[in-house]
Amino acid sequence: MRLVAENLSCERGGRRVFSDLALTLEAGRALAVTGPNGVGKSSLLRVLAGLVQPASGEVRVEDGDPELSAGEHCHYYGHLDALKPALTVLENLAFWTAFLAPGRTGAQWQPMTPIEALEALGIDHAGDLPAAYLSAGQRRRLALARLLVVARPVWLLDEPTSALDAASEARLGQLMSAHLAAGGMIVAATHQKMPLADVGTLRLEAPA
């Protein structure tokens, strides 16, 4: 399975954000997208996720699930946590578990149950508390838990390590390595170094 994007260009508010960008990502590999602020890292992730129509070019997942679009193979972990403060932590996670359609139901893609996901991220003690009572770091970890409970091969992470403390960052590193080992792919827009071994980098330059 491969994530392929060819001569992608994207416009936001009439401004050309990036143009004729191409990338291919093999299974089991991770890609860090770097570059100064405003160069379009987040826009690239949103284009890969299918949330934004590219001005030109196309994104496809080769030998993935033919009926699904490229976006439906991806988990999108953006700046917003998609959590409802009025619902408890478990209710939030249980909803996404039931709601999101899995990207591929291959054998090696065993998703975790909500409880396991919370334990993997160290917030299982707050399971029955309303999400409103969580700290920023805990909310980010709860958003990360969504990636574990539904099996999708491609992870699109926007600033994954932001608002995470050292322990959580280490946990994130382990989860990412496990995902890659299972044949998954990760595209992360980030400034800091990724808690991963070998990571390809794609540097976006501001258009000359």
Binding site: Y76, L80, D81, K84, G103
Partner: peptide, 11 residues
């Protein structure tokens, strides 16, 4: 709160 993006991508 970002849920709409996920709903659009939910398949």
């Amino acid at each position: 709160d970002g849920s709409l993006d996920l709903m659009l991508m939910s398949g």
